[in-house]
Design a protein around this nucleic acid. Structure first.
Lengths: 175, 175
DNA sequence: GTCTTCATGTAAGCCGTTACATGATTAA
DNA sequence: TTAATCATGTAACGGCTTACATGAAGAC
Protein backbone atom coordinates (compact mmCIF):
# COMPACT_ATOMS: atom_id res chain seq x y z
CA UNK A 1 0.00 0.00 0.00
CA UNK A 2 0.85 3.67 -0.13
CA UNK A 3 3.56 5.20 -2.20
CA UNK A 4 6.72 3.19 -2.18
CA UNK A 5 8.45 4.88 -5.05
CA UNK A 6 10.54 7.75 -3.71
CA UNK A 7 12.31 8.68 -6.91
CA UNK A 8 9.72 11.44 -7.26
CA UNK A 9 10.90 13.13 -4.07
CA UNK A 10 14.51 13.00 -5.07
CA UNK A 11 13.57 14.71 -8.33
CA UNK A 12 11.28 17.25 -6.72
CA UNK A 13 14.04 17.99 -4.25
CA UNK A 14 16.46 18.87 -7.01
CA UNK A 15 13.88 20.93 -8.88
CA UNK A 16 13.06 22.71 -5.65
CA UNK A 17 16.30 24.62 -6.06
CA UNK A 18 15.68 25.65 -9.64
CA UNK A 19 14.57 24.47 -13.10
CA UNK A 20 16.64 21.59 -14.41
CA UNK A 21 16.69 19.07 -17.23
CA UNK A 22 16.54 15.32 -16.78
CA UNK A 23 20.13 14.95 -17.77
CA UNK A 24 21.27 17.56 -15.28
CA UNK A 25 19.32 15.83 -12.50
CA UNK A 26 21.03 12.62 -13.41
CA UNK A 27 24.53 14.03 -13.37
CA UNK A 28 23.89 16.14 -10.30
CA UNK A 29 22.76 13.07 -8.39
CA UNK A 30 25.81 11.25 -9.66
CA UNK A 31 27.93 13.90 -8.02
CA UNK A 32 25.99 14.54 -4.85
CA UNK A 33 23.47 12.01 -3.62
CA UNK A 34 25.14 8.84 -4.89
CA UNK A 35 26.36 7.83 -1.48
CA UNK A 36 22.95 7.75 0.12
CA UNK A 37 20.53 7.85 -2.77
CA UNK A 38 21.21 6.30 -6.14
CA UNK A 39 18.89 6.50 -9.07
CA UNK A 40 19.38 4.23 -12.04
CA UNK A 41 19.85 5.86 -15.41
CA UNK A 42 16.45 4.96 -16.67
CA UNK A 43 14.27 6.11 -13.79
CA UNK A 44 14.46 9.84 -14.13
CA UNK A 45 12.97 10.59 -17.56
CA UNK A 46 9.86 8.47 -17.10
CA UNK A 47 9.30 9.89 -13.63
CA UNK A 48 9.57 13.43 -14.96
CA UNK A 49 6.82 12.61 -17.45
CA UNK A 50 4.62 11.21 -14.71
CA UNK A 51 5.22 14.27 -12.55
CA UNK A 52 4.40 16.52 -15.52
CA UNK A 53 1.13 14.68 -16.09
CA UNK A 54 0.28 15.09 -12.43
CA UNK A 55 0.96 18.80 -12.65
CA UNK A 56 3.80 18.64 -10.14
CA UNK A 57 6.39 19.88 -12.62
CA UNK A 58 6.20 22.06 -15.72
CA UNK A 59 8.20 21.08 -18.82
CA UNK A 60 9.58 23.68 -21.16
CA UNK A 61 11.62 23.15 -24.29
CA UNK A 62 14.73 25.27 -24.27
CA UNK A 63 17.45 25.72 -26.86
CA UNK A 64 21.07 26.08 -25.85
CA UNK A 65 22.69 27.05 -29.13
CA UNK A 66 21.15 24.48 -31.44
CA UNK A 67 20.71 21.89 -28.72
CA UNK A 68 17.24 21.06 -27.52
CA UNK A 69 16.59 20.45 -23.86
CA UNK A 70 13.52 19.76 -21.77
CA UNK A 71 13.82 21.87 -18.67
CA UNK A 72 11.43 21.18 -15.81
CA UNK A 73 10.39 23.56 -13.08
CA UNK A 74 8.50 22.65 -9.95
CA UNK A 75 4.91 23.85 -9.60
CA UNK A 76 3.08 24.94 -6.47
CA UNK A 77 1.46 21.48 -6.28
CA UNK A 78 4.92 19.96 -6.59
CA UNK A 79 6.25 22.12 -3.78
CA UNK A 80 3.38 21.07 -1.58
CA UNK A 81 3.93 17.40 -2.19
CA UNK A 82 7.62 17.78 -1.54
CA UNK A 83 7.05 19.68 1.69
CA UNK A 84 4.54 17.07 2.84
CA UNK A 85 7.09 14.34 2.24
CA UNK A 86 9.83 16.23 4.10
CA UNK A 87 7.57 16.62 7.10
CA UNK A 88 6.15 13.12 7.05
CA UNK A 89 7.60 10.42 9.28
CA UNK A 90 10.61 8.84 7.68
CA UNK A 91 10.11 5.21 6.79
CA UNK A 92 12.84 2.89 7.92
CA UNK A 93 15.10 1.65 5.19
CA UNK A 94 14.72 -1.97 4.30
CA UNK A 95 17.41 -3.54 6.40
CA UNK A 96 19.60 -5.40 3.98
CA UNK A 97 23.22 -5.00 4.85
CA UNK A 98 25.35 -7.76 3.42
CA UNK A 99 28.34 -6.84 5.52
CA UNK A 100 26.40 -7.23 8.75
CA UNK A 101 24.86 -10.44 7.50
CA UNK A 102 28.32 -11.89 6.94
CA UNK A 103 29.49 -10.59 10.27
CA UNK A 104 26.61 -12.38 11.94
CA UNK A 105 27.50 -15.72 10.38
CA UNK A 106 31.26 -15.54 10.56
CA UNK A 107 32.73 -18.51 12.42
CA UNK A 108 36.28 -17.58 13.36
CA UNK A 109 38.37 -14.59 14.30
CA UNK A 110 40.48 -14.67 11.20
CA UNK A 111 37.50 -14.36 8.91
CA UNK A 112 36.10 -11.63 11.11
CA UNK A 113 39.31 -9.65 10.91
CA UNK A 114 39.27 -10.00 7.15
CA UNK A 115 35.73 -8.66 7.05
CA UNK A 116 36.66 -5.74 9.25
CA UNK A 117 39.65 -4.95 7.06
CA UNK A 118 37.57 -5.05 3.90
CA UNK A 119 35.00 -2.79 5.49
CA UNK A 120 37.66 -0.40 6.72
CA UNK A 121 39.14 -0.01 3.27
CA UNK A 122 35.76 0.66 1.77
CA UNK A 123 34.66 3.30 4.24
CA UNK A 124 38.04 4.98 4.19
CA UNK A 125 37.46 5.50 0.49
CA UNK A 126 34.04 6.99 1.13
CA UNK A 127 35.48 9.14 3.90
CA UNK A 128 37.99 10.64 1.51
CA UNK A 129 35.26 11.43 -1.00
CA UNK A 130 33.20 13.10 1.70
CA UNK A 131 36.16 15.21 2.75
CA UNK A 132 36.68 16.31 -0.83
CA UNK A 133 33.04 17.32 -1.15
CA UNK A 134 33.34 19.17 2.14
CA UNK A 135 36.35 21.11 0.89
CA UNK A 136 34.54 22.09 -2.28
CA UNK A 137 31.51 23.18 -0.27
CA UNK A 138 33.59 25.24 2.11
CA UNK A 139 35.17 27.12 -0.77
CA UNK A 140 31.90 28.48 -2.16
CA UNK A 141 30.21 31.67 -0.99
CA UNK A 142 28.34 31.66 2.30
CA UNK A 143 24.60 31.01 2.23
CA UNK A 144 22.00 29.42 4.54
CA UNK A 145 21.94 26.46 2.17
CA UNK A 146 25.69 26.04 2.47
CA UNK A 147 25.58 25.97 6.26
CA UNK A 148 22.90 23.32 6.28
CA UNK A 149 24.58 21.16 3.65
CA UNK A 150 27.81 21.34 5.61
CA UNK A 151 26.00 20.19 8.71
CA UNK A 152 24.42 17.27 6.86
CA UNK A 153 27.80 16.35 5.47
CA UNK A 154 29.35 16.72 8.91
CA UNK A 155 26.88 14.18 10.17
CA UNK A 156 28.02 11.61 7.64
CA UNK A 157 31.66 12.39 8.27
CA UNK A 158 31.29 12.06 12.03
CA UNK A 159 29.70 8.64 11.68
CA UNK A 160 32.38 7.46 9.29
CA UNK A 161 35.09 8.68 11.62
CA UNK A 162 33.77 6.76 14.57
CA UNK A 163 33.37 3.65 12.46
CA UNK A 164 36.91 3.94 11.16
CA UNK A 165 38.17 4.39 14.69
CA UNK A 166 36.29 1.37 15.99
CA UNK A 167 37.47 -0.84 13.15
CA UNK A 168 41.09 0.29 13.38
CA UNK A 169 41.07 -0.30 17.09
CA UNK A 170 39.52 -3.75 16.73
CA UNK A 171 41.80 -4.89 13.93
CA UNK A 172 44.82 -3.78 15.93
CA UNK A 173 43.66 -5.67 18.97
CA UNK A 174 43.08 -8.85 17.03
CA UNK A 175 46.55 -9.15 15.61
CA UNK B 1 24.49 -10.03 -14.07
CA UNK B 2 25.60 -12.49 -11.45
CA UNK B 3 23.60 -13.51 -8.45
CA UNK B 4 21.71 -10.68 -6.90
CA UNK B 5 19.43 -12.67 -4.68
CA UNK B 6 21.08 -13.16 -1.32
CA UNK B 7 18.22 -14.78 0.51
CA UNK B 8 19.97 -18.06 -0.18
CA UNK B 9 22.99 -17.08 1.87
CA UNK B 10 20.90 -15.95 4.80
CA UNK B 11 19.21 -19.34 4.76
CA UNK B 12 22.42 -21.32 4.29
CA UNK B 13 23.91 -19.30 7.13
CA UNK B 14 21.19 -20.39 9.50
CA UNK B 15 21.34 -24.01 8.35
CA UNK B 16 25.10 -23.91 8.79
CA UNK B 17 24.51 -24.12 12.51
CA UNK B 18 22.15 -27.04 12.37
CA UNK B 19 19.10 -28.53 10.63
CA UNK B 20 16.09 -26.27 10.76
CA UNK B 21 12.62 -25.93 9.30
CA UNK B 22 11.41 -23.05 7.17
CA UNK B 23 9.25 -21.75 9.96
CA UNK B 24 12.10 -21.81 12.42
CA UNK B 25 14.33 -19.91 9.99
CA UNK B 26 11.63 -17.34 9.63
CA UNK B 27 11.11 -16.83 13.35
CA UNK B 28 14.82 -16.97 14.11
CA UNK B 29 15.47 -14.22 11.58
CA UNK B 30 12.62 -12.27 13.10
CA UNK B 31 14.45 -12.40 16.40
CA UNK B 32 18.03 -11.96 15.28
CA UNK B 33 18.78 -10.59 11.84
CA UNK B 34 15.77 -8.26 11.45
CA UNK B 35 17.80 -5.17 12.11
CA UNK B 36 20.25 -5.70 9.29
CA UNK B 37 18.65 -8.38 7.16
CA UNK B 38 14.93 -8.77 6.73
CA UNK B 39 13.30 -11.52 4.73
CA UNK B 40 9.68 -11.26 3.77
CA UNK B 41 7.38 -14.04 4.89
CA UNK B 42 7.06 -15.57 1.49
CA UNK B 43 10.69 -15.79 0.42
CA UNK B 44 11.96 -18.58 2.60
CA UNK B 45 9.90 -21.59 1.58
CA UNK B 46 10.37 -21.18 -2.17
CA UNK B 47 14.09 -20.57 -1.69
CA UNK B 48 14.40 -23.74 0.40
CA UNK B 49 12.86 -25.65 -2.49
CA UNK B 50 15.27 -24.11 -4.96
CA UNK B 51 18.21 -24.91 -2.70
CA UNK B 52 16.94 -28.49 -2.32
CA UNK B 53 16.74 -28.86 -6.11
CA UNK B 54 20.27 -27.56 -6.40
CA UNK B 55 21.46 -30.06 -3.84
CA UNK B 56 22.57 -27.38 -1.41
CA UNK B 57 20.17 -28.49 1.30
CA UNK B 58 18.57 -31.81 2.17
CA UNK B 59 14.90 -31.90 3.18
CA UNK B 60 13.59 -34.44 5.63
CA UNK B 61 10.08 -34.87 6.92
CA UNK B 62 10.00 -35.03 10.69
CA UNK B 63 7.14 -35.56 13.11
CA UNK B 64 6.98 -33.71 16.39
CA UNK B 65 4.12 -35.43 18.14
CA UNK B 66 1.53 -35.45 15.41
CA UNK B 67 2.88 -32.35 13.75
CA UNK B 68 4.62 -32.62 10.42
CA UNK B 69 7.65 -30.51 9.65
CA UNK B 70 10.11 -30.24 6.82
CA UNK B 71 13.53 -29.97 8.33
CA UNK B 72 16.42 -28.98 6.09
CA UNK B 73 20.08 -29.69 6.62
CA UNK B 74 22.93 -28.14 4.71
CA UNK B 75 24.91 -30.38 2.36
CA UNK B 76 28.60 -30.27 1.55
CA UNK B 77 27.82 -28.36 -1.65
CA UNK B 78 25.79 -25.93 0.40
CA UNK B 79 28.63 -25.41 2.84
CA UNK B 80 30.97 -24.71 -0.03
CA UNK B 81 28.69 -22.13 -1.58
CA UNK B 82 28.18 -20.48 1.76
CA UNK B 83 31.90 -20.34 2.46
CA UNK B 84 32.59 -18.93 -0.99
CA UNK B 85 30.06 -16.18 -0.35
CA UNK B 86 31.53 -15.36 3.05
CA UNK B 87 34.96 -15.01 1.51
CA UNK B 88 33.87 -13.11 -1.58
CA UNK B 89 34.11 -9.33 -1.70
CA UNK B 90 31.09 -7.76 -0.12
CA UNK B 91 28.95 -5.85 -2.56
CA UNK B 92 27.98 -2.39 -1.47
CA UNK B 93 24.40 -1.97 -0.40
CA UNK B 94 22.23 -0.03 -2.76
CA UNK B 95 22.41 3.40 -1.24
CA UNK B 96 18.84 4.38 -0.51
CA UNK B 97 18.55 6.12 2.79
CA UNK B 98 15.44 8.25 3.02
CA UNK B 99 16.63 10.00 6.13
CA UNK B 100 19.82 11.21 4.45
CA UNK B 101 17.88 12.21 1.35
CA UNK B 102 15.66 14.43 3.46
CA UNK B 103 18.63 15.79 5.31
CA UNK B 104 20.19 16.74 1.99
CA UNK B 105 17.15 18.69 0.87
CA UNK B 106 16.15 20.27 4.13
CA UNK B 107 15.94 24.04 3.86
CA UNK B 108 15.98 25.42 7.37
CA UNK B 109 17.36 24.68 10.78
CA UNK B 110 14.04 23.98 12.36
CA UNK B 111 13.22 21.23 9.93
CA UNK B 112 16.71 19.84 10.33
CA UNK B 113 16.36 19.69 14.09
CA UNK B 114 13.06 17.91 13.68
CA UNK B 115 14.73 15.36 11.42
CA UNK B 116 17.53 14.84 13.91
CA UNK B 117 15.05 14.38 16.72
CA UNK B 118 13.04 11.85 14.77
CA UNK B 119 16.20 9.96 13.93
CA UNK B 120 17.40 10.06 17.51
CA UNK B 121 14.18 8.55 18.80
CA UNK B 122 14.33 5.80 16.27
CA UNK B 123 17.90 4.75 16.88
CA UNK B 124 17.49 4.98 20.63
CA UNK B 125 14.79 2.36 20.24
CA UNK B 126 17.11 0.17 18.22
CA UNK B 127 19.89 0.74 20.73
CA UNK B 128 17.71 -0.55 23.54
CA UNK B 129 16.86 -3.65 21.55
CA UNK B 130 20.52 -4.30 20.85
CA UNK B 131 21.33 -3.96 24.53
CA UNK B 132 18.63 -6.46 25.40
CA UNK B 133 19.99 -8.93 22.87
CA UNK B 134 23.46 -8.36 24.28
CA UNK B 135 22.27 -9.13 27.79
CA UNK B 136 20.62 -12.32 26.65
CA UNK B 137 23.77 -13.34 24.79
CA UNK B 138 26.00 -12.64 27.77
CA UNK B 139 23.89 -14.85 29.99
CA UNK B 140 24.38 -18.01 27.92
CA UNK B 141 27.30 -20.40 28.29
CA UNK B 142 30.67 -19.42 26.85
CA UNK B 143 31.55 -20.60 23.37
CA UNK B 144 33.64 -19.36 20.44
CA UNK B 145 30.38 -18.54 18.67
CA UNK B 146 29.24 -16.44 21.61
CA UNK B 147 32.42 -14.39 21.66
CA UNK B 148 32.15 -13.64 17.97
CA UNK B 149 28.46 -12.78 18.08
CA UNK B 150 29.13 -10.46 20.99
CA UNK B 151 31.82 -8.74 19.01
CA UNK B 152 29.54 -8.32 16.01
CA UNK B 153 26.85 -6.94 18.27
CA UNK B 154 29.39 -4.67 19.93
CA UNK B 155 30.16 -3.24 16.54
CA UNK B 156 26.55 -2.26 15.98
CA UNK B 157 26.22 -0.92 19.50
CA UNK B 158 29.35 1.21 19.19
CA UNK B 159 28.09 2.79 15.98
CA UNK B 160 24.70 3.50 17.47
CA UNK B 161 26.30 5.05 20.52
CA UNK B 162 28.37 7.48 18.51
CA UNK B 163 25.38 8.39 16.38
CA UNK B 164 23.24 9.02 19.46
CA UNK B 165 25.98 11.15 20.92
CA UNK B 166 26.38 13.21 17.77
CA UNK B 167 22.65 13.78 17.42
CA UNK B 168 22.13 14.65 21.09
CA UNK B 169 25.00 17.09 20.94
CA UNK B 170 23.71 18.70 17.76
CA UNK B 171 20.11 18.99 18.90
CA UNK B 172 21.28 20.60 22.14
CA UNK B 173 23.40 23.09 20.28
CA UNK B 174 20.57 24.07 17.96
CA UNK B 175 18.14 25.04 20.65
C1' DG C 1 37.58 11.86 -38.23
C1' DT C 2 36.88 9.98 -33.78
C1' DC C 3 35.83 10.19 -28.96
C1' DT C 4 33.53 12.13 -25.23
C1' DT C 5 29.78 14.36 -23.33
C1' DC C 6 25.15 15.94 -23.81
C1' DA C 7 20.51 14.35 -24.15
C1' DT C 8 16.57 11.15 -23.97
C1' DG C 9 14.55 7.30 -23.80
C1' DT C 10 12.48 1.67 -24.25
C1' DA C 11 12.19 -3.19 -22.84
C1' DA C 12 13.09 -7.44 -20.40
C1' DG C 13 13.47 -9.60 -16.38
C1' DC C 14 14.44 -10.33 -11.72
C1' DC C 15 13.42 -9.15 -6.88
C1' DG C 16 10.68 -8.34 -3.19
C1' DT C 17 6.46 -6.95 -0.84
C1' DT C 18 1.65 -7.43 0.18
C1' DA C 19 -2.20 -9.78 0.33
C1' DC C 20 -4.37 -13.96 0.13
C1' DA C 21 -5.00 -18.99 1.60
C1' DT C 22 -5.15 -23.10 4.55
C1' DG C 23 -5.11 -26.03 8.40
C1' DA C 24 -3.38 -28.17 12.74
C1' DT C 25 -2.17 -27.80 17.68
C1' DT C 26 -1.95 -25.84 22.18
C1' DA C 27 -2.63 -22.60 25.83
C1' DA C 28 -6.00 -19.63 28.25
C1' DT D 1 -14.02 -22.16 22.59
C1' DT D 2 -11.33 -18.82 21.04
C1' DA D 3 -6.98 -16.92 20.19
C1' DA D 4 -2.29 -17.50 19.34
C1' DT D 5 1.28 -19.96 17.45
C1' DC D 6 3.00 -23.52 14.45
C1' DA D 7 3.51 -24.61 9.68
C1' DT D 8 3.58 -23.94 4.61
C1' DG D 9 2.72 -21.91 0.86
C1' DT D 10 0.59 -19.00 -3.96
C1' DA D 11 -0.32 -14.90 -6.82
C1' DA D 12 -0.27 -10.26 -8.26
C1' DC D 13 1.85 -6.17 -8.60
C1' DG D 14 5.21 -2.76 -8.44
C1' DG D 15 10.03 -1.36 -8.29
C1' DC D 16 14.56 -1.36 -9.84
C1' DT D 17 18.51 -2.83 -12.63
C1' DT D 18 20.63 -3.98 -16.92
C1' DA D 19 20.99 -3.81 -21.37
C1' DC D 20 19.74 -1.87 -25.47
C1' DA D 21 18.96 2.25 -28.67
C1' DT D 22 19.58 6.73 -30.88
C1' DG D 23 21.51 10.98 -32.25
C1' DA D 24 23.62 15.59 -32.03
C1' DA D 25 27.43 18.86 -30.63
C1' DG D 26 31.90 19.93 -29.43
C1' DA D 27 36.67 18.82 -28.37
C1' DC D 28 41.19 17.02 -29.94
Amino acid sequence: MGIINKTRYAILGVLHEGPTSGYEIKSLMGRSTVYFWRESDSTIYPMLKVLAMEGKVLPKTVYVGKKKKEVFSITEAGREEFKAWLESPTGSETPRNEFLLKLFFVADRKEMTRLFQERLEKIEGIYKEYKKIEERLESIADSPCKTIRLKALGYGIALLESEIQWLTNEIGRMQ
